[in-house]
Design a protein around this nucleic acid. Structure first.
Lengths: 253, 253
DNA sequence: CGTTCTTTTGATAGCTCTCAAGTCGCGTGG
DNA sequence: CCACGCGACTTGAGAGCTATCAAAAGAACG
């Protein structure tokens, strides 16, 4: 369950057809799970899908997966680690757009402009599945399941990105952030009540459009109110229902 | 170019195959333009596309096109008029999600949940093209152009909805709002400098996550600074470059 | 022509940011 | 092993932007 250990020997070929290690487990929880493991029909198409997946070698923390304006060729599913996407405006200010956990898909917003609209950075050691987009699109034409899944994934992203657009209080934002992480981790089989924050307070603040000081203060208050327990980057959720109640406006559950 | 006059005699059948009035002009600027008018190939598929389009009768201002949790069956392209989408939270507060002008597509965020996640309301008299989603998805499998266009449209929406998520000042938000309207109207062949605000100040404020009073004040200040000229719901943009400069952070152009 | 809703304008308050300083943890090097 | 230095984080005080409250002016409607 832990990310692969840092390996400086990354001289192995980047293209390894498929299968190795906890492959099977990963694929059951990846964004394409419903497609990759459809229960045994469209066998030839499925084989094609397997072929067009490339598993990347581990990407070191602090390294980029792609950058703004890189030509768009592929979407990536996170296999392990956490990815941060962000843009930098013309005055040099960074703006964090999202965090991507294992099983989630990066790059869907690059289709229209045909270039990545943001930078993608590995926060810790990250491994990915790379899907060539032309290949997967053409395959989707022959595989209704895959097409439907792509539509669903993109539709989900449309709804999700308007999530933080509301005018919510710092408390609501932070509660929603924690609940969102908890839910997504729980879906992947991790604990729903113990969250490790891979990202810095500054990244969280930037993502939530708050000051880092505000994030600090709210976390402390949440702790004082016995909602959570914070120790550095480890968060234990003590009162999930109440936290969810705080987040309900933001998450519209 | 003006919306059809209000007609109380809406007893006509809702399904009219296609073609009538300024049909041709509309289709050249609709979201599916590149697909509906592909320059004469895939004739049979094209005919199918034409068949699955239903032109709705005019919808009266204040009437809903769909509501939260309605089962999802179709996406709609606006032909004339303006549509507002919004949700109401559990405390009864309304939250405006977007405004849709002629040529734009509504309902793409409903694919994943299979239900519309918001309400869609006609602000003035609205006419629509209705696309059955199952039909268009299956057609997309046989029509690579159409599939690609759907991917592009959804990708665009993903990027667009994170647009207002930043922590921008009231000035920046309002400037971006005006520029966005101006650009979208200009793309449709309307004037880029004369904008009619179909929506109320309250709707604008809600959409931008501001108070109506703030919208009022900022518009006045913009006028005092010779950026725009406001008369009720008519806005004339006097200094497009400067307004665009104000909006640049939000629109990331 | 009065009623009602929308919009504008003014005064005040509150939330969050900014600035500033201090604390903590961790890796480095003595 | 410990002192040092750096970055991340926390904590405090004050300022600013926008919301809220209140009220009046202006259109739209019957």
């Amino acid at each position: 369950m832990t990310p692969s250990p840092l390996s400086l020997a990354t001289a192995r070929p980047a293209h390894k057809p498929h299968a190795e290690g906890d492959e099977q487990h990963f694929c059951t929880t990846c964004a394409f799970a419903g497609v990759c493991l459809p229960g045994g029909y469209e066998k030839s198409a499925l084989a094609e899908l397997q072929c067009l997946i490339e598993h990347t070698d581990p990407i070191q923390p602090g390294r980029h997966i792609f950058r703004v304006n890189d030509p768009f060729h592929a979407v990536y599913a996170v296999r392990a680690g956490t990815v941060k996407t962000y843009v930098v405006d013309d005055e040099g200010r960074e703006q964090v757009l999202g965090f991507f956990l294992p099983g989630e898909l990066i790059g869907l917003d690059a289709i229209h402009p045909a270039h990545y609209p943001c930078n993608a950075l590995a926060l810790d050691t990250v491994t990915l599945c790379r899907f060539s987009f032309p290949a997967i699109a053409s395959l989707a034409a022959r595989m209704p399941n895959l097409q439907a899944q792509l539509f669903r994934l993109m539709s989900k992203d449309i709804a999700a990105s308007s999530l933080l657009a509301g005018d919510f209080s710092a408390d609501e934002r932070l509660a929603a952030f924690l609940i969102s992480l908890s839910d997504r981790l729980a879906n992947r089989g991790y604990s729903a009540t113990r969250v490790h924050l891979v990202m810095s307070r500054a990244d969280i603040a930037n993502y939530l459009r708050l000051a880092t000081e505000t994030v600090s203060r709210v976390l402390r208050r949440f702790q004082d109110e016995n909602l959570i327990e914070v120790e550095r980057r480890e968060v234990a959720i003590r009162d999930l229902p109440r936290l969810k109640h705080l987040a309900r406006c933001v998450l519209r559950t």
